[in-house]
């Protein structure tokens, strides 16, 4: 298991440099920007997709077959990807938190509650996407999984952006939104866990060629 995580770490370092640049740009834009949430949320969304990016590289290199010759269980192979996902979302969340804090302090509008809610919202989004995408990828392979996912993003992208703006506006009006966000985040966490278990079951049955 440690071996698999180490492998993911090496791969992330190598393949995700491009992501790092994008993320850097977005963090800066979100700092100077007019508070458009897209730029704030996007880095975490990308971080959530890191496991899928890795799997696509692995499939190309036939690592998914090679890993089967090593002393790992299929459950371990699946779990490694979910843990990598958690780590990358976690790190990105931390970076976003720092960027947002600086921005809020500079704008003299720092509020713990605002920051907390924003981060929970971002975390939810960072978890929901891989939670839906990973089982598809583990069942059908990355090619089919990717197509499905692009469709999903296109649909969800516009929808959530609109929704979030409405919700955030609500935050200042009613206290209830905080509760909604906490519930959404808890839901996302549960979804991630269920997705994890589902992927293990699916991958155990998968025939690899």
């Amino acid at each position: 298991m440690k071996g698999l995580l180490l492998k993911d770490f090496y791969s992330v370092c190598k393949y995700c440099r491009f992501f790092a640049i994008v993320v850097g740009v977005f963090l800066i834009v979100s700092y100077f920007g007019d508070g458009n949430l897209f730029f704030t949320i996007y880095p975490c969304l990308i971080a959530g997709m890191v496991p899928i990016t890795l799997i696509s590289y692995e499939d190309r290199d036939k690592w998914h077959i090679f890993a089967q010759t090593l002393p790992f269980t299929r459950a371990q192979i699946v779990s490694a990807k979910y843990i990598t996902g958690l780590c990358s979302v976690g790190i990105m969340l931390l970076l976003t938190a720092i960027a947002q804090t600086i921005q809020m302090v500079n704008a003299q509008s720092f509020l713990w509650a605002d920051l907390g809610q924003l981060l929970l919202l971002i975390l939810s989004i960072g978890l929901i996407f891989p939670a839906i995408a990973l089982p598809i990828v583990f069942q059908f392979g990355v090619e089919k999984g990717r197509i499905l996912f692009i469709v999903m993003i296109a649909m969800a992208g516009g929808g959530t952006a609109a929704l979030i703006n409405v919700e955030l506006a609500d935050t200042f009006l009613a206290g209830k939104t905080a509760l909604v966000i906490v519930l959404v985040c808890a839901g996302a966490a549960v979804l991630y866990a269920l997705s994890w278990l589902l992927s293990i079951q699916l991958y155990k049955r998968r025939q690899l060629r």
């Binding site: 071996g3 180490l6 492998k7 090496y10 190309r60 290199d61 036939k62 090679f66 090593l70 790992f72």
Partner: peptide, 25 residues
């Protein structure tokens, strides 16, 4: 095991592979 296509990720170098295997075996 050595299969006809050695499926090591292209970005890894033998040194890194060694470290990964040390955790696997």
């Amino acid at each position: 095991v050595v299969l006809d296509e050695v499926g090591i990720c292209g970005c890894l170098n033998p040194k890194q592979v060694g470290k990964i295997m040390a955790h696997a075996y």
